Every structure is written in C-alpha cells, then in structure tokens.
Simulated assay, not measured.
Amino acid sequence: MTKWVEILYSIYDENGNLLESTQEEVIIPLGYNILHKEIEDKLASSEYGKEYNFLLKKPFGSRDSNLVKIIPVSEFYNRNINPVINLVVNVDGSIGIVRSVNSGRVLVDFNHPYAGKDLLYVIKLNREVTDLKEKISGLLAIIYNVTRKNIEVNIDDNNKKISINIKDLDLNKEQKEIIKKFISEIKDYNIE
C-alpha cells in the first residue's frame, strides 16, 4: 500500500532564489514522483517532525532548444486564447509558456520551467496520513491547485459512495477515475 505523508516544502535554484514554496501543508502519496523519485524514496524511511535538504543536479534535465516552438498567433485566436508573455498554454496536449508575441508569431517554450537548473528542496516531513478523507482532499488540492479547506469529502462506507464538493470546480468522470488510480482503498467506491 502507498504511504501518504504531510509535508511543507520550498524549492530554491542554484543561486538560492526561492522558486516555489507551500503556503499550507501538502499531502502526497510517495512513489508517484510528485516531488522526485530520489526525494520520495528517502522520505519513505525518514523521521517525522524533521526538516530535510535534497540537492538535485538538473532533476528536470537540460533545456532542449527543440522544445521551443514558433506558433502562428492565429492558432491561439482560433481557440479563443489571447497569447501574452508568461501565459501557460496547452497546445495539443503539451504544456508550454508563452515567451514572446511578435509579428503574428508566438514563441512557446515547452521545457519544464526548472529544466537546466540544479535545485535545492527543503522539506519538513510532518506526519504520515492514514485518513481517507485527508488523502482524497490532499490529492485534489495538488492536482487542481486549490486549498484543502475548499474541498469537502463525504464517505459512505456502507453504500461504497464518496461525494466530493470543490468550491468553483466540478469533477468529470475521468477526473474521478484519476483519484481511484492514486488511492487503491476506494477502487470499489462510486464517486459522486
């Protein structure tokens, strides 16, 4: 069975610049490489209540110039998207960041934002999470970038039903199935 943990973390680049930091505790399943395989492997056997530093050399690989594409601005307008610098876009299933918009052309970078960087992860490992509601709300908070307090989970064990309410978000059938892939304990439940 997958081990779930509650953590706080910050990520710094090689120059000590803060790139990302949690504002509230995050609940994650270990073994799915949500953070990084090397980190999750070490956290699985680490002591709770302690802070750990992990320095990773280019964990997202080197930057690849072939992943920087020029796309006609008309492609964006046809999809009702106004391309502006730093806009995160989904182009045919690939996530990229608009780097420039000039003369009817849009430069989109499909490299991971941290590609080419050495990263320092500072992680406080708070506790193991065993409560099913916490696992579900924790996973949804990560996937949809919402705070856990905006997620309500009710579990009816007798009828094998789970109802989920997320403020300003409705889950479709595919999204509900994703939850079951991460949390094996609910594979036989109906998610409403």
Rank of each mutant, 00 (worst) to 15 (best):
I143M: 14
S163D: 12
R148E: 13
N158R: 12
D170R: 14
L169F: 09
D156I: 05
Y144Q: 00
L169E: 05
I142Q: 07
N154T: 10
N165Q: 12
L139P: 01
D170S: 14
K149N: 10
N159H: 06
I155C: 07
K161N: 11
D170T: 11
N154I: 07
V153G: 02
N154M: 08
I166A: 07
Y144F: 14
K160E: 14
K161D: 04
N165S: 15
K149M: 03
I142S: 03
V153W: 01
N150M: 09
D156Q: 04
S163A: 09
D170C: 08
E152P: 01
T147Y: 10
I155H: 04
D157Y: 15
V153I: 13
Y144L: 04
K167G: 00
I155K: 03
D168Y: 13
I151E: 00
I164Y: 03
I162F: 02
K149E: 11
T147P: 08
D157I: 08
K167W: 03
D170G: 09
I142T: 04
N158Q: 11
N145W: 09
R148M: 13
K167T: 10
E152K: 15
K160F: 11
A141K: 00
K160G: 09
D156P: 03
D157F: 14
I143N: 06
N165T: 12
N154W: 02
I166L: 09
I151H: 01
V153Y: 00
V153E: 02
S163H: 04
D157H: 15
R148C: 05
D156N: 15
D168L: 12
R148Q: 15
D168N: 13
L140I: 12
L139Q: 02
D157R: 11
N159P: 02
K161I: 12
K160W: 10
A141P: 04
K160M: 13
K149S: 09
N150L: 11
N150S: 13
I166Q: 04
K160Q: 13
S163T: 14
L169G: 05
S163E: 12
I155D: 02
D156V: 04
D168V: 09
S163R: 14
R148D: 06
V153H: 00
N158M: 10
I142N: 09
K160I: 08
S163F: 06
A141D: 03
N154E: 13
E152M: 11
A141F: 03
E152N: 14
L169N: 05
K149T: 08
E152C: 09
A141N: 04
T147D: 13
Y144I: 00
I151V: 09
Y144G: 01
N158E: 15
N145C: 10
